[in-house]
Design a binder for these strands. Sequence first.
DNA 1: CTCGAATTCAAACAAACGTTTGAATGTTAG
DNA 2: CTAACATTCAAACGTTTGTTTGAATTCGAG
Lengths: 227, 227
Amino acid sequence: MSLRSVKPPHETRTRILDAAEELFMQHGFESTSMRLLTAKAGANLAAVNYHFGSKDALIEAVFRRRLDPMNTGRIAELDRLEKDAGGRTLEPEAIIRAFVGASLRMIEDSKSGGRNFIRLLGRTYTDPQKHIRSLIGQLYAPAMSRFKAAFERALPQMPGDELVWRMHFMFGTLAYTLAATDTVQLIAGCKPEDRYDARLLEARLTAFLAAGLLAPMHDSADVKKAA
Amino acid sequence: MSLRSVKPPHETRTRILDAAEELFMQHGFESTSMRLLTAKAGANLAAVNYHFGSKDALIEAVFRRRLDPMNTGRIAELDRLEKDAGGRTLEPEAIIRAFVGASLRMIEDSKSGGRNFIRLLGRTYTDPQKHIRSLIGQLYAPAMSRFKAAFERALPQMPGDELVWRMHFMFGTLAYTLAATDTVQLIAGCKPEDRYDARLLEARLTAFLAAGLLAPMHDSADVKKAA
DNA sequence: CTCGAATTCAAACAAACGTTTGAATGTTAG
DNA sequence: CTAACATTCAAACGTTTGTTTGAATTCGAG
């Protein structure tokens, strides 16, 4: 009985998930073959089908493993904020920080594959395959409705459809910022040194999002007049 | 000599590009087979390799066909704005409108495949394959540096790295808004009726982006203190 | 140790992939 | 018409894909 035999519960299962996370991020779902994946995981080719059933089921497992804890953490953080505030209404910026903080905290974690996952996730919101998008949507639904309710309380004067759009814009900014690593940075001729100084990025991102969320309402008369 | 024989210069070439645009948008690059693509275009399986050389070269041609005119149009619009303004500095919101306008105008065009292309484009900024991202970056480079210079003139007090980040956020918001069709909308429980009323969307998007661009600077002391 | 379940393994499966080939067809100019 | 070129076509190429199989191996409980 060696020191290492402390009974890892699903060792190869976990190794496969880690390898999948990294390879899916690097090459995408289709371009990652089971042969490359299992080789990287140090497992047999048949291991994926044995442990997960199919490649599609593996993809689903990759997202469930991280997304469920991440979003329950978001909700818990929001609950904590509201409890601390007593009856007072929350600052919109505090709600934003609770949402983006969960993503940015995961990006700092380069030890486990959190960074890989966040970049993979950001790209998957716009994946061509409908069943993948609907899986993501399903995993996000509880947190999203919870945060929408919080924003509605914090911004009672904002029309419902306007809030939905501004949440959409905010979500898009976050997703793209985390997923796109070089495209615009290179174009703008910027050194990517502080790219993932998460604290500085959080300050910049939160300032941008809060201003956008609180932007003065567009004059709908202008829109109709111009039409 | 029938009426139809008015000598279309590259009929099948164009049909292939149109079919590729739609199928790449629906299923992605890898999941779109040459057999399905050529069948939809009404061409022979070998036609793609004959007219373009390879599947990768076809992908490149799909982007070049639309992206080059779109970005030269952006630059021309910006030139026009600056000429009309004489020596006065432009409003940041006007610069934003010149940039997003080109995308939104193309989305209104459902006759030709502009709408398909915009959604495909929005997803491709974060494509896993590096040579695809670098192609996009190369096609965007002239417009991007031109708009960066315009923003620098309009916002002389903003530090350079802050401007780069805020342009990155704006670009991401636009890209995601155009590419993501259902993910967040369904989550938020919103009817997608006015999804592509381009005029209303432009008003909403411009208001959000302008506010974000002009957001009060984050206090870097806060960032360092918290660290 | 022994048995039965869980896991790993090498090998093979049929299907689909992008690409190439060489002949057939269509088009244009002399 | 003929010659030369451009395009289309059916067929086949060699790889690679995700998955399955059945035997070998490992492992934990009686």
